[in-house]
Design a protein around this nucleic acid. Structure first.
Lengths: 148, 148
DNA sequence: CTAGGAGCTAGAGTGCGATCTAGGTCAAGC
DNA sequence: GCTTGACCTAGATCGCACTCTAGCTCCTAG
């Protein structure tokens, strides 16, 4: 059941690249060194793959490597520090929420610019954008169009 | 009306840091060099500040410097390339939307882990998490708790 | 007149997270 | 037995976006 996967197999099923996998281990993200085969090669288990997938998730929502290391060390220290783990998760949760909010706000600005462009392009009146008083979110473009 | 702001003043009102401002100019993000005062110092106008705020927005939702440079060069090339500008905006829009989606998905996983921890901590039953069959999203922790 | 703070340029350095290189070892198929 | 491709370690390098340094100039206030 503990499958003994090679680094290449783990790379495939986590999407993480063999270099990254070795890097994560070096950096202490993997609660202890991965067990080795007779020939000195990494023999990952199901547990490792699952954990790596989680690491990937953490990373891809911006959790720094250092925080993952901290979480890993709490987990591998065993039961008793659940409060600390929770705090780490909560802090990250807050950051991710804030990030999503920021992104949404910026997306709205981009959308409104894009809509203006596309409306005028569709109507074939794009060049009129720079003649009258331009809509505020294209002010920069309008001013530039009239020469710096 | 074109205020002639110093780099320090622009830094304050854009939140961008004088080093970053000079960097952006060097990198061609500012449609042409900023005009200088008699003594060779940058004299920014209202237009520049507005554009820099937009750049900041673009950057903070992950648009690469190279894309901003491209957009800037389209704008400063003048009217006629609106379709290309729109395409750039649209592409970035897609990336941002995807990013938000990913973030939301990962947030959900983190939330569910956090909820499990907090429920058990509140009930004072945290250590029970590692005894029975653990909920799937804590599988890694549970296995680790039983020794690698 | 002068001191101090802000600005200038060119170029070096930083931080993060990988990613790659060199110089080997290991193992499965022919 | 040999080839081939995946794997090993240690350490160098990269990419991006800044950020800082050195050595200078400029300008404003006292």
């Amino acid at each position: 059941m503990d499958e003994d996967l090679t680094i290449g197999q783990v790379s495939e099923r986590t999407g993480l690249g063999v270099h990254a996998l070795r890097y994560y281990e070096r950096e202490g993200l993997l609660m202890g060194p991965v067990p080795r085969s007779a020939g000195g090669r990494r023999a990952y288990g199901r547990l490792d793959v699952e954990w790596l997938v989680l690491c990937n998730r953490f990373r891809s929502c911006g959790m720094p490597v250092a925080d993952i290391r901290r979480y890993a060390s709490l987990v591998s220290a065993g039961p008793g520090n659940e409060a600390e783990r929770l705090e780490l998760l909560r802090e990250h949760e807050v950051r991710v929420r804030a990030e999503i909010e920021q992104l949404s706000e910026n997306l709205a600005v981009i959308e409104s610019k894009a809509r203006l462009y596309s409306d005028h392009l569709e109507a074939g009146t794009a060049s009129d954008l720079w003649t009258g008083q331009a809509p505020s979110c294209l002010a920069v473009e309008a001013l530039a169009a009239r020469g710096r």
